[in-house]
Design a protein around this nucleic acid. Sequence first.
RNA 1: GCCAGAGUAGCUCAGGGGUAGAGCACUUCCUUGGUAAGGAAGGGGUCAGGGGUUCAAUUCCCCUCUCCGGCUCCA
Length: 647
Amino acid sequence: MITITFPDGSAREYESGISGLEVAESISPRLAKEVYAATVNGEIRDLTRAINENATVRFHKWEDEEAKHAFWHSSAHLMAEALEAVFPGIKFGIGPAIENGFYYDVDPGEGKVITEADLAKVEEKMKELAAANLVYKRRDVSKKEAMEFFSGKGDEYKTELISELEDGTISLYTQGNFTDLCRGPHLPSTEPIKAIKLLSLAGAYWRGDEKHKMLTRIYGITYPKQKMLDEYLQFLEEAKKRDHRKIGKELELFTFSQKVGMGLPLWMPKGSEVRQTLISFLTGVLKKRGYKIVTTPHIGNVNLYKTSGHFEKYGADSFQPISTPQEGEQFMLKPMNCPHHCEIYNATPHSYKDLPLRMAEFGTVYRYEQSGELHGLTRVRSFTQDDAHHFCRHDQLRDEFKSIIELILYVFKILNFNDFSAQISLRDPEDKQKYIGSEENWEKAEKDIIEAAGEMNLKTTIVPGEAAFYGPKLDFMVKDAIGRKWQLGTIQVDYNLPDRFDLTYNGSDNQKHRPVMIHRTIFGSLERFVAVLIENTSGKFPLWLAPEKAIVLPISEKFNDYALKVLEILNNSDICTLIDDRSEKIGKKIRDNELKRIPYLLVIGEKEVESGTIAVRKQGEGDKGAMKVEEFIDFIKSEIEKEVAFK
RNA sequence: GCCAGAGUAGCUCAGGGGUAGAGCACUUCCUUGGUAAGGAAGGGGUCAGGGGUUCAAUUCCCCUCUCCGGCUCCA
């Protein structure tokens, strides 16, 4: 007999060798139906695997990531079986579960192509197989046996994977006619897989390496209920409506032109308005925090980047140098602002008493991103960073970090950005050689970052090996409408540039010392930030950011003269740009969704003309009553102040 | 850069070897009166660009460009 302990602390006796599923059945048949995997003594396992010793057991229902993982991983195997049936001779790479669904990387064979049209066939086959209620069977095998099985099949990808595995840790899973190399866990059978949808087709390099062969990746998702699938597909449809590229076009915020060039955003008047509001807001915040605002040119002599080291590292993949009539003279479009800022630092002598020095610039930079990487406003070739560099002493590093975290959290709070994650990137402990800077400084900087984040109550995930070669960093990430992750703010320690630019300050010992440099952005770039802002708000900006605060809506053209007067006063008030259209059909001009994105609606009819007022409505909140235009202006101003405390 | 798809009116899209279509938007007139979508008439397209095949190409083939979904990359 063995004792099984459950998460609530209760325990029961069972025969040794009982399966998780049987244990679940003994508790309730309903539980057995809803459970997809189990964690046994901390190890996630198939429900059907025997438990041979005393154990703590936690069952995973759909709500748990572990359950979804097993469900989708099993679905990937199911898809593989269907693929093998539809495309005989197909070879398999890897097929994991992901955050939403699963994929499988496959090689259809020389000269063969899988197209979107084929997905329906595979989907049908999957449904057929799932309905057959195939059982997933696990088998532990020796490396030799696994090797023989897959080389017999001619599956070079699987054999490559097996060759790297340790003997004794290899397991195979079989369902129906399909056997796969797999660690598990899996569902007991295909029975719960009721709703199936293959979503898309993409190319993906084998093992994520550009130099390797490109396989075909098939994405899919499955659910235990059709309704859940319908809801997910519905969600994807809804998400598409929030896409900043779509809203940006509808609201005339920005555009792209083939003539200007790909990845080069053109900000239209309304988009520019949003941008300018963000810049002036942040400038105010920065000045209060002791930042000095600087301005530097969009180009720099190629020697500047040779000094910084960027030319050597990125020169070949950048916009190429611009030549001048002067023989041998070359300039580059600036890919970052730091070298310019270093030269500003070097323009004056610095005492230890002057540090930290915080230098900020809304600096437009140009990077030759790969054509396939460009994406709306989130990945462009010309963008404006809300860049700043803190030059400080080593003993100030931690406080500077804290001040930046505080600043970022403050800005995010005002913008109502709650859904972000923070990641600390440290050195690869296996390969400390590739990093610049002393062991001692790295140790301290990594510790400072972690502690600063802790002291600011910032929840972070720590990722070793992700640091830049010049220093550790802390990144803030957000997700877009369909869940893609984008990096916004970043805080990076840099030991490289201070050396290369020979930055110094005079210490209390009257000796020259090397300052540390911190690169930081809050928005990341105005382009990416506005994109995320649009997707977060579906284009319905908060009042203070809205490019149009209000729209004047005369009920009839009879009232146009009065509406015109109202508009004139509002436009002169400098608080808002208004839609200057008093035609009778104004209502018709504005689509429902667009209208809803404008915070205030000013309605003018006979009553208003008589009393010299405007009827004010806040979208989504209803009537605010009649006001004189001047009252409305004051009202808007106070509402904006409520939204943003410009302290 | 790589794999796969797409590009037809301002927008959303249908069509298909023989003179280019719808809805919405736009213009004019009529009608209308507290969050658009009543009526009539009208304007608007080198069917992304360039080469082929053909008596004839927007349609079939090839190349290029751009966009979408991924991969790789992201100072």
